[in-house]
Design a protein around this nucleic acid. Sequence first.
DNA 1: TACAGTAATGTAAACCATTACATTATTAAC
DNA 2: GTTAATAATGTAATGGTTTACATTACTGTA
Lengths: 327, 327
Amino acid sequence: MTNIQQVAKQAGVSVATVSRVLNGQNTVSSKTRIKVEDAIKNLNYEPSMLGRNLRNSESRILLILIPSISNPFYLEIIKGIENVALSQNYNILLCETDSNPEKENIYFDLVRKKMADGIISMDPAVNIETLKELAEKYSIIQCSEYNVDSGIPYVTIDNEEASYRAVKHLIQIGHKKIALMNSDERFLYSRQREMGYQRALEEHGIPLNNDYILYTKHLGFEHGQQAMKKILGLHDRPTAIFAVSDLLAIGALKEINASGLHVPNDIAVVGFDKIDFSNMTNPTLTTIAQPMYKMGTVAAEMLIDKIRGNDVDNVILNHELVIREST
Amino acid sequence: MTNIQQVAKQAGVSVATVSRVLNGQNTVSSKTRIKVEDAIKNLNYEPSMLGRNLRNSESRILLILIPSISNPFYLEIIKGIENVALSQNYNILLCETDSNPEKENIYFDLVRKKMADGIISMDPAVNIETLKELAEKYSIIQCSEYNVDSGIPYVTIDNEEASYRAVKHLIQIGHKKIALMNSDERFLYSRQREMGYQRALEEHGIPLNNDYILYTKHLGFEHGQQAMKKILGLHDRPTAIFAVSDLLAIGALKEINASGLHVPNDIAVVGFDKIDFSNMTNPTLTTIAQPMYKMGTVAAEMLIDKIRGNDVDNVILNHELVIREST
DNA sequence: TACAGTAATGTAAACCATTACATTATTAAC
DNA sequence: GTTAATAATGTAATGGTTTACATTACTGTA
């Protein structure tokens, strides 16, 4: 494998000059530049990132922590991150934690060992204590899920308001018996969305009914089905479901269909996220659109900024209610 | 940031000894080992992958080339790859090419620049000439889609046979007018699946009808919808659809539902891949299950083997017909 | 006690590029 | 033609490991 010394020798210059040509510095005379470029072509030389990275003490790799790659919610975010990263000569390492602390730690080690320059964490179940500790030495951003008092910069949406709007929409089209299919109260977004749900009900004088609030362990399709089974078993069945994730909503949809009831005539359903699939179901799903791509680009910009040593501010992005066939 | 010299100094030994402790070599006396371990703990030392990688001329990163991260077909494969990779101390760089040669080239550069130790290509639209050239110098495996004469090792399934079985199933439950919703004939899997389709028809004395064979540009949901629209417009409508991808099939399903027809009573539908979502549709989708996770693990094992300098053989995995509500 | 043989440790080069600083070449001005 | 100023190039250290080879410390035996 050719290295920079061999190029220098072939071109009859010093390695410093070759390096300068490589990095596009303008202190090289065009005569020598051409000599060097010829030598590079001749020898088929490709500069080694290994040497460069060591010298520059950087890996040019960004870590993306997600709980599960199967949740399409993250896909658009990742695309956003990737585009910004690539444009700045960074690459991304996608890390699926399965919300498993051990796996998480393997990935944290990558940044400790200089294999990664920073982290964008999207895992709601991340070990926040470790993350805080890590954030003292390394560049870290939280995306979507965050912790207010951690001091770690984040980009997210206003979950409380989004949830409020979804529920208000259901109320406005005449529903009074509205169930909330929530995830796990450990997560901030879950608590915030529940608050929005409560606020909408209160504002319209609808009393809270605890039978109508369900929690699921995970945001998977099957969990939506299970939760919906419980709801269908209630003696006083709700006429509308607000699920905090499209996957849950799609599970609910499936279960309602299976029970012979009709959406939206018998039960209306609202989801959250506007994943691609929410448009492929029958009926299509009313949902809250998160600006996922944008969230990704912002997160990546924040992280790269932080890596460069700048201070970055938190960002709250706008959401949108998308009304489709399920309501 | 502490380095190995500082640890050596603190422990009162040489860097070689520290390195030996780090790499678990057994030529270190337990007395010194303890000294070194104490120093490591004291100084909070973490070995730098940058130095190590340079010295070892490796990056411990594997490149995964996929056309689109949005196609769930790849997700399980990726999980398989990742598990094997992690267990062998490799990390994976997920690269979405969008079947765009420029983007592809950015990623190829990573291996040229030693930023990656090898490639698993899953992109049917990959530039095979470049890939072949690259394969002479670097370790490369093709997964799912492959090229017979490229000399690049691959892991895949028997597409012709799988397709044959899917169509035969449709024939056995009484269908004679069976449409094939194919992708692009440029791709080997596409040609192979068409051959399986033809063989099944021939074997049962059903004449080929070219109106029943459609091609789509991409494997997306919308392309399935569009193709289905065309099919529904035929004066002699088929009674069954075999789509070469679940996403296409789901698009078809949606379109059939929208037109007021019933699946499977009016039109039966078979997909391909058994992605998670194929079980969430209404009705659930009959499909060919590819052993995606297994395919991933095998691909990763092959690649790591190749990186180690061993020769590897091609692998053909088994598929399975999963009969569900849509037929 | 001396010596061979083995176990433990150390020295220094290698991996490859970048860059502060030093040196040499060139240009401009008088 | 000299000198000063600037442009172009070179030298050598640096980043952090690993490891072949060299050296030293130990063990057991005669």
